[in-house]
Amino acid sequence: MIETTFTPVSAALGGAMIGLATVLLLALRGNVFGATGILAGFLSPSSSSDWAWRAALMAGLVCGPLAHFALLGEMPPVEVPVAPWMVLVGGFLVGLGVTFGAGCTSGHGICGLARGARRSIVATATFMLTTALTVYAVRHVFGGL
């Protein structure tokens, strides 16, 4: 386990930016800001104009840490406290899960809850629970893997 500290101010500031970005996308293009849906449509677009806005959005996302660097003079830390195979297996399960469940933390957890969608309330409660159970199992039953 790698220790991290509670950072309420930067968390609230970043959270407000995330929320504002979802509102902007709705105002500009009329879509919800779900990373799963944006990535899925980017990989298999329905038309070239559909691909173009997704590509522009993805380019913006990837530049986020660079804007962070430009503003604060350092890159954000990325610390991976798990074995490489867990990153790979975890990534594959996330890909399966978000496709079957039609959304992830951004699509269900932020945009869906903001719209009061019942599907998103059920999905968010479910994945928050299974994530917590998995972290508990990995760290306190299997001893960290």
Binding site: V89, L93, V98, C104, T105, M128, T130, A137
Partner: peptide, 8 residues
């Protein structure tokens, strides 16, 4: 499933 992958 998503949660299991996120937790891993």
């Amino acid at each position: 499933l998503f949660g299991i992958g996120w937790g891993m």
